[in-house]
Design a protein around this nucleic acid. Structure first.
Lengths: 171, 171
DNA sequence: GCACGTAACTTGAATGTGTCAAGAAAACGC
DNA sequence: GCGTTTTCTTGACACATTCAAGTTACGTGC
């Protein structure tokens, strides 16, 4: 189980989150802070995971509230929503940089990938019939190191990894 | 309503589809041919559209059969499944080339985009922590020419376009 | 051409993610 | 502190997709 990935005290994170909410002119509420904490602790978490994390450490929060929070935060640009094919919606605290994601076909784990080609990678599609493009979203599909090793070692031993659900969506 | 986009007689297309099924060692059934016809006529159609098209010109086909066909065809590599964030699954007859998609934030229409950087574009992520990447999927987000014009002209006139449903998923 | 075995389809129900709606609670500005 | 507005709670709903059991029909061998 992954701990907080950056070595930042929780209080400071909390204060930062509060400031981010205020800067975005959003009201500071317990559910919103809890959602942001959850996403800070577990990047790329899906909605169910967020709900579980929020409920794990705080008082009861309705699933609807979590959905509302995620929508509000996404609309405000504080949270980024990603949804690889075959997966439910996942969220991450937006870092503001332009990074992409690598998704493991076997276990569904998601890893951040820095832009391969400089800062703005594949944003230059050659005039796609009048389209005005403002964002390029890149998803790399493959096998994570763990699942790859498991596949190499033996074929009858199914790969297990972290707490991410198995992903069967993609061929 | 768009006609068949390539000037190929339907019979030939049908024969081609049958051959593709046999080559993939799949049984040739009416529902499968109907699904392939539907995708040939309407690329990037979602499941509901495929069901409607199949039922429109053929006898009753259960929705379950359409799902099974799409899965079988996807597994066999004859059909490619795409799922932009906020949209349901969409399918297209696989051309075998490595092309990407541009999705309109306003009307949800999808346009094919040829690879910007040569034949295999963004496949080289710089060693994403041991990931073995076999495919890079790129989705360009923006506005199609129609919705762009509509936005430029007047703001109170909502853009209308083809028969694609409105897309509200993405910010 | 006919029969058999298996893959594929039909029917019906279930799962689960996400949304809608109405009322209650709480955050923020004064 | 008080009122307004946003946000949360509760409950129900909508929809895409899947599961399961039984029937149909495709393809192969005779």
């Amino acid at each position: 189980m992954a701990e907080t990935e950056h070595a930042v005290p929780t209080e400071h994170v909390h204060l930062t989150h509060e400031g981010m909410l205020r800067a975005a002119q959003l009201r500071v509420t317990r559910p919103r802070l809890a959602v942001m904490d959850a996403l800070h602790e577990r990047p790329h978490a899906d909605t169910g995971t967020v709900i579980a994390l929020v409920r794990g450490r705080h008082t009861n929060v309705s699933h609807q509230a979590v959905y509302d929070c995620l929508h509000a935060l996404t609309d405000a640009g504080l949270v980024r929503r990603i949804q690889p094919s075959g997966s439910t919606a996942r969220y991450e605290l937006r870092v503001g940089d332009n990074h992409h994601h690598a998704v493991c076909r076997s276990c569904g784990s998601i890893t951040d990938v820095d832009c391969a080609v400089g800062s703005v990678p594949c944003l230059h599609a050659d005039d796609p019939q009048g389209f005005t493009i403002d964002e390029a979203e890149v998803v790399y599909w493959g096998l994570c190191s763990v699942c790859q090793d498991a596949a190499d070692d033996s074929q009858d031993q199914s790969p297990t990894r972290t707490t991410q659900p198995t992903m069967e969506g993609r061929r």
